[in-house]
């Protein structure tokens, strides 16, 4: 049973409240540069996508870390940093295929999502449902039902006469 942040970018309105609550929770300040979640935005196309650590099972950042500071925490199903070992080499920042590891320019340390130790504030504040903290094994169920529903509907339609 592992809960994870599940992102549905189509529901994201780009308000960046997730960034705010993240940096306030962790640093006591509002500063998107020190948030563990960020919104990537294509302004002229109206697209916004929340980017956050996927808590990979076989994480590139863990493999890349030269001091074994990054590691899996199986209890909460997340990747964490042992700052006693971290030397701030930023290899993980580059290694992450999602760009989800940030460099905090003020604290001068790498930061990434720690799931707020089990109560992620971003998901709590996101009323649109773009960010949800849910059981990974059920993450696809809504969409599955929706797709199945559509299939059902199409099957119940009267048979169209063949085109002449």
């Amino acid at each position: 049973m592992t809960k994870q942040l599940v992102i549905d970018y189509e529901k994201c309105t780009g308000c960046r409240l997730c960034e705010m609550v993240c940096s306030v929770k962790h640093e006591g300040v509002v500063n998107p540069a020190r948030s563990r979640i960020n919104i990537a935005k294509w302004e002229t196309k109206g697209l916004t996508v929340p980017v956050v650590c996927r808590q990979c099972e076989d994480a590139p950042c863990v493999s890349a870390c030269p001091t074994n500071a990054r590691m899996r925490d199986e209890e909460l199903g997340r990747v964490i940093v042992n700052y006693d070992r971290c030397i701030g080499c930023k290899t993980c920042v580059v290694a992450c295929p999602f760009g989800a590891i940030n460099w905090d320019p003020l604290a001068r340390k790498v930061i990434s999502c720690d799931l707020c130790d089990g109560e992620p504030q971003c998901a709590r504040f996101c009323e649109t449902g773009a960010i949800r903290f849910i059981e990974v094994s059920t993450a696809n169920k809504d969409r599955q039902r929706e797709a199945a529903g559509q299939l059902l509907e199409s099957m119940q339609k009267p048979v169209q006469p063949a085109a002449r």
Partner: peptide, 18 residues
């Protein structure tokens, strides 16, 4: 900018904002 906007009472601010 990447400068902080300091929050005076972060825990209370979070709950009250909610």
């Amino acid at each position: 900018g990447t400068m902080d906007i300091k929050i005076a009472h972060p825990a209370e601010a979070l709950e009250y904002d909610k």
